[in-house]
Design a protein around this nucleic acid. Structure first.
Lengths: 247, 247
DNA sequence: TGTAATAGTTTCATAGAATGAAACTTAGTT
DNA sequence: AACTAAGTTTCATTCTATGAAACTATTACA
């Protein structure tokens, strides 16, 4: 039996166009149409619609398309009171000042994690962490935290959906997760970015649900395994304080 | 001859749904459908599509719809390097500290102006200025600046499109605009908000195009006409400095 | 200067996608 | 239990969205 679609194709396509602008700021019509594999005329019509509603504007100079003010406006009006990225910023800055390393805040979103807030170390050599970045949930200290401390159902689903190279690796990963659960923190050592290491701990809100992962990251030269082990309690303590500020 | 539409209706409707969330953070299906005047089933289908692409999520607790992370993500990746709201913030803070009043930055958008940045006075009685707010271009000091110092074509078009109560008023307004052009700044006295006054000056980018309107606003008790006249040169000077930082 | 190439825009016949009425599910209220 | 309200799904029909092709504007280059 062929599943009836419950979505609207034209809208899907228009949203795909918007999503193109997560990686690029300025795109031409042809560029977009080849990116999402649609005819120029179709893309043009969708762009006109997006432009009319203020979601897309054109760069005066280059004539190329870019995101319009409406996107910004919607984001500005998005609830800020209960937004961790907003509330926890001062505490993150404090932690950065104490440790001298870059501090980031991650949320799980589907099979990815997304960096919703970051404050940079002010040392010469430092981890640079752009806010808004997405990364796969399969690697990195914060990924492991987001999986290990997620609610049972969520974790099961995630482990299901993440593909593993082999069964042995799967087993190894699961045992790593229980270790993380026992310790209360996760580390990563050049897992995703060469030369970078990170410690990550869970932040729980007042109703004891996982709210985010808090990570401290820097160059391997300063963050040895031993050093991260030492820092972990301090970071956990900060995370505990932060959690009390949520919901 | 019936104009052929160059836009896509389904997409227009979906975007209208998103735009609903500029005023409210949480909305139910029925609420939305009555707001934009469409059938529940249609709205439901559009919402499902928006949800699948991450533009809408559902509030766990209330089951209501709200904006998703994608909106935030897009805004986060929006070009920040050349964004006045970002670049001018430190200078705005400095001005606020000197004058002790709320400082705002406005952009023209269609027949409206939009507050793209603001720093609040820290006095007990102060003008509160939420970022992202829209207001009609017909009233307020910054509106007058945005019109008076706009490029010739833009100004003509705006004056055309803004409706006037009477011809006399129109004449009065036009003469007011030339006065503003001569002075280099505009003021407003309880024009839009009772008890509030404001001085506004243009910010020009390096290629001498109007980039934004910079406003200082506060209670009429502190901002008399005389006082605003005194402040104007200082604000203009700050605006000049800011302009040099753009493009 | 002419010619080709490239990017963007509009037109139009046609397929099939989007639509809204209605039926159906929950869940909450009287 | 009957009623009300919000949300969800189904389905026949219509009109909308589609992509091919034509057209325009701009740039490259010979």
């Amino acid at each position: 039996m062929e599943e009836r679609k419950l979505t609207v194709r034209a809208v899907e396509r228009a949203l795909d166009i918007l999503i193109c602008f997560t990686t690029d700021t300025d795109l031409g019509l042809t560029e977009i149409s080849s990116k999402i594999g649609l005819h120029k005329s179709t893309v043009h019509r969708l762009l006109t619609t997006l432009e009319e509603k203020g979601f897309i504007t054109r760069n005066q100079a280059t004539e190329k398309y870019r995101l319009g003010m409406r996107v910004w406006e919607l984001a500005a009006n998005q609830s800020q009171e209960d937004d961790p990225a907003h509330i926890l910023l001062p505490e993150m800055e404090r932690l950065r000042d104490v440790l001298g390393e870059t501090v980031s805040l991650y949320l799980q979103d589907g099979k990815e994690r997304i960096r919703i807030q970051a404050v940079q170390s002010n040392q010469a050599i430092r981890r640079v962490a752009p806010v808004g970045m997405r990364a796969p949930l399969s690697v990195g200290a914060s990924s492991k935290v987001l999986i290990a401390f997620a609610k049972e159902e969520v974790r099961a689903e995630l482990l299901e959906s993440l593909e593993w190279v082999s069964d042995e690796e799967n087993g190894h990963y699961v045992s790593q997760l229980s270790e993380i659960q026992a310790l209360g923190y996760a580390t990563s050592f050049e897992e995703r970015e060469p030369g970078a290491a990170a410690v990550s701990v869970p932040i729980y809100d007042r109703s004891h649900h996982l709210a985010a992962a808090l990570s401290v990251s820097g160059p391997v030269s300063r963050l040895s395994m031993q050093k991260m082990k030492e820092l972990a309690p301090m970071i956990s303590e900060a995370a505990g304080r932060m959690g009390k500020m949520l919901k």
